[in-house]
Design a protein around this nucleic acid. Structure first.
Length: 486
RNA sequence: GGAGAGAUGGCCGAGUGGCUUAAGGCGCACGCUUGGAAAGCGUGUAUACCGCAAGGUAUCCAGGGUUCGAAUCCCUGUCUCUCCGCCA
């Protein structure tokens, strides 16, 4: 959510940034200015009425006390006070009605304005290239064992990772031949867009997750979090998934259908750990000394994939459930751009240690997510399909989520004696990485001519029994005998 | 699932219809005091919105209701705790 005061004061800038995102400002903003003005007038009027009611109500009390004190003087004396009380009481009754009407009027204006504000996406930073679609995303880096640069130091966009000497297979064929992936039985027990892992394949998934968590917690300074896999709709509102993107989510209807109003007692399956982890600090004011706070979390992610029928139906690319290691940071506003670069590097480190070729893309204005001010996508090379696929998305949300989720911090170094005004933190997150897609990238990049898959060096300790001598360790995934459909 | 007790500021905690402008304490900040510190004393310590400002309004878990007036009374919901039952 953008700051109301900012939008009011910088309407032309907001309109220009919306146009850069490919949206029509007139449609997104509607009658913003007029509604805002009416709303402020309504609030002022309402508060005047309330002040008058409170004043008269207090007068009633004072007169009652006087009437009580006058009791010894006789009924006439008491009656004189009640002559004053009665009209005051009817005044208050009238005011009450006026207040109720004004409240309804103002509430509807506030709701309209909130509705507009909540549906306005974040504004892209100036460094984000203006463009319409993923075609306009900018290649920032190409990596294949090292950075691939042209002679003038720019990313060598003509570079393509070397193809193997044999015909490279897509991961679903590799996985089914090895007996480690089972899409058919997954469809039987759960439906389409699910997969079952067996044996060394199941272990590979777990090894990848442990490898990533160890790297981020031991070397990159993240604190591991294991959050709930269900969240309430208030949390989904905080990260910007609701109200606009509810159709992408799985909703547990145990408390009835979603009303459109964020609740704190309903249940939704998380589409990413970003939601529970970012909302850890919802409605909290942190101390400046707590920033920057960095969390990583390994969770399953559940996505309905509504509207993507027929897209990526083969393999593990697009599943209703996949596992992901997520990186989340809370920081001071002035640090968020530097933290964004750092977080993206932390995600890239996973790919580099696994020896997976990738490129870093800077998303253009038209391809960015709703809540993001700047996003890098990391795309891994898939030789079985001869293309790059998104494996991580690292975004700086600035204060957009913090404003929706009410996450603040109190500056500690403020001038002496001055009240320290709390500010919204900046939030960032990125995949570090999507484990399912890393799994298939390993399968495709490490496939051998004999159909086996070599285990990347970094994963060997995670795939083997460390108490055994290294010479006895398995270095490849061979066909599984007693599992799956091989 | 059954029975009971709760939910008040950063924290503890008082508060049964108007002297609450939320007591008191703790913590925190600043000042006085001191050679320096502690103690002591003093002052200040929520958020949001409207307003140029003075100021005003709202918020005592949430939503309704009663009343001239609700932190306080009534109804509904949520969460927490205790006991019983069931359970990985």
């Amino acid at each position: 959510m953008l700051d109301l005061g900012y939008v009011r004061a910088n309407l032309p800038v907001v309109e220009e940034k919306l146009r850069a995102r490919g949206m029509d400002p007139a449609v997104v903003l509607g009658d913003f200015a007029a509604i805002d003005q009416n709303r402020r007038g309504g609030i002022t009027h309402l508060e005047q009425l309330q002040a008058e009611r409170n004043k008269k109500s207090t007068q009633v009390e004072a007169l009652r006390i006087q009437a009580k004190a006058a009791e010894p003087l006789g009924l006439d004396a008491v009656a004189k006070f009640y002559e004053q009380i009665t009209p005051l009481e009817s005044d208050v009754r009238l005011l009450k009605e006026l207040i109720e009407n004004e409240e309804k009027h103002t509430a509807s204006l506030i709701q309209q304005l909130n509705g507009i504000l909540q549906s306005v996406p974040n504004l892209p930073q100036d460094s984000v290239p203006v463009g319409k679609s993923e075609q306009d995303n900018r290649v920032e880096k190409i990596w294949d064992g090292g950075e691939k640069l042209t002679s003038d130091g720019k990313p060598d966009t003509a570079y393509i990772p070397a193809a193997p000497s044999f015909h490279a297979l897509p991961h679903w064929e590799i996985g089914e031949r090895l007996g480690i992936l089972d899409f058919e039985r997954a469809a039987k027990i759960s439906g389409s867009r699910f997969v079952v892992h067996y044996g060394q394949g199941a272990r590979l998934e777990r090894a990848l997750a442990n490898f990533m968590l160890d790297l981020h917690t031991r070397e990159h300074g993240y604190t591991e979090v294991l959050p709930p896999y269900m969240v309430n709709s208030k949390s989904l509102f905080g990260t910007g998934n609701l109200p606009k993107f509810g159709e992408d989510l799985f909703h547990c209807d145990d408390k009835g259908p979603y009303t459109g109003q964020p609740q704190d007692n309903d249940h939704w399956l998380i589409p990413t750990a970003e939601v529970p982890v970012t909302n850890l600090f919802r409605d909290e004011t942190l101390d400046e000394s707590q920033l920057t706070t960095s969390f990583c979390a390994y969770t399953p992610c559940f996505r309905s994939e509504a509207g993507s029928y027929g897209k990526d139906v083969r393999g593990m690319i697009r599943q209703h459930q996949f596992q992901k290691v997520e990186l989340v940071k809370f920081c001071k506003p002035e640090d968020s751009n530097a933290e964004h670069e750092r977080l993206t590097r932390d995600a890239e480190a996973v790919l580099e240690r696994l020896g997976l070729p990738y490129r870093r893309m800077l998303l253009c204005t038209g391809d960015m997510g709703f809540a993001s001010a700047k996003t890098y996508d990391l795309e891994v090379w898939l030789p079985g399909q001869n293309l790059y696929r998104e494996i991580s998305s690292c975004s700086n949300f600035e204060a957009f989520q913090a404003r929706r989720a009410n996450i603040r911090f109190r500056p500690s170094g403020a001038a002496q004696g001055k009240a320290k005004k709390s500010e919204f933190v900046h939030t960032l997150n990125g995949s570090g990485l999507a484990v399912g897609r890393t799994y298939l990238a390993v399968l495709e990049n490490y496939q051998q001519a004999d159909g086996t898959v070599r285990i990347p060096e970094a994963l060997l300790p995670y795939m083997n029994d460390p108490s055994k001598p290294r010479a006895e360790w398995e270095t490849k995934i061979a066909p599984q005998r007693h599992t799956g459909r091989s």
